[in-house]
Nucleic acid binder design. Sequence first.
DNA 1: CGGTAGCTTGATCGGTATCAAACCGTGTGG
DNA 2: CCACACGGTTTGATACCGATCAAGCTACCG
Lengths: 224, 224
Amino acid sequence: MSCKVRRQAICAALADHELTDLETIMTHRIVDRGQALVYEGDPPAFAYNIIDGGLKLYKSLADGRIQVTAFLLPGDFLGISSRSPLPFTAEALTRTEVCAFPYPKLEVVFEKYSALEERFLTEVSDEVAAVQDHMLLLGRKTASERLASFLIWLAGKYEGVAPPTVPLALLATRADIADYLGLTLETVSRTFSQFKRQGFIELPHATEVVLRNRERLEEIATGA
Amino acid sequence: MSCKVRRQAICAALADHELTDLETIMTHRIVDRGQALVYEGDPPAFAYNIIDGGLKLYKSLADGRIQVTAFLLPGDFLGISSRSPLPFTAEALTRTEVCAFPYPKLEVVFEKYSALEERFLTEVSDEVAAVQDHMLLLGRKTASERLASFLIWLAGKYEGVAPPTVPLALLATRADIADYLGLTLETVSRTFSQFKRQGFIELPHATEVVLRNRERLEEIATGA
DNA sequence: CGGTAGCTTGATCGGTATCAAACCGTGTGG
DNA sequence: CCACACGGTTTGATACCGATCAAGCTACCG
């Protein structure tokens, strides 16, 4: 079968003929923009692989303040380290396609293929490392450093996957990006404009960026 | 043998007679205040169990800005999701005692006792959940909400472990707490003073707190 | 005692939030 | 095909929280 993420997702850990075990327990699901795939507080029942579209994971405070803890794009995995109750909500940024693996059955497959479990462990490590980077960003970086970090992260996500289709789709709105970076949407917008004025980026549409000076953005992102 | 953390650390997953397998591969290590146990960028060689004292994990920016991503106290585990290179530095807050498990040997023990591996997984889930809470704190909470969250977290750490020895040892300096909460040490100090004035806490010494009104602090911490 | 590390408090500054208005771009109905 | 409505974005003016700069203070240690 031809799956868009065959080579990136956890499936990449298995050979073609081994994949059938995963496929038999798997179901597809489509989530429309703005709809939640899972809710904070739910007991987790599935692990998911993002095939198309994108998700934001977020936690919220009683008065509506939100912190997006991660954006998940095609090839990413959700539910690695699941915990009851689920500590975040996952909501679709656009129409999003996922495949869902029910937990109990997934564990059976895990026991059969240790390569899967290993892959799983590196996913966790990567996730923890990414999340620590994000804490540094939220706790210590300025607005420009935050946006630059986001743009570099985004460019990295597209790398190798697609040909460098120069304009990158942002997927998220200014408000989503703000909730990810711990800023307000106005500050995000102003910082985009500032980067544009400085010639670091172009914004053909509000939803697409071109990185004109990636090196400089990388320097800014790391606080250099 | 009598280990202070026998009932909390990962060791709790094993019966007494099974512990010998862990003990034979384990070595003790003492780290003095201010000394690093491991450095950001190192290849990870050991997993550690904190027995006494405390550690701060942190990442830093080129210009010296620091974000403490976690404080580890007795019973906590370090190196769950290890990754090469290590994404953080671990430094002792006071003279700290740990036991160290070399990775390759640890994996052998893991294969023997699946209870250990399970325990390990719940540790990871807890860690990921905690880290997401901390992102919400860093991205969206006010100074008072941050310090209240820290105090509640601290109280939770001591709970059940020791008898409610009313004054809690802070272990960390104002600067460490500031680096954990994404604030400056002055703001942390002012917020302590403010809580004291409001009667929420007492500060018998600068290094010890008594929570006089834990409920109110919990409300503040959650943004209520 | 004096030195020093850590803490508190005060005065001021500045970056980002907040409040507010105008500006797209896209889809819809007349 | 145009007018309008609406979600999202940009830009401007102002406010405010926490950072920064700057003294003192306290406790502990030699």
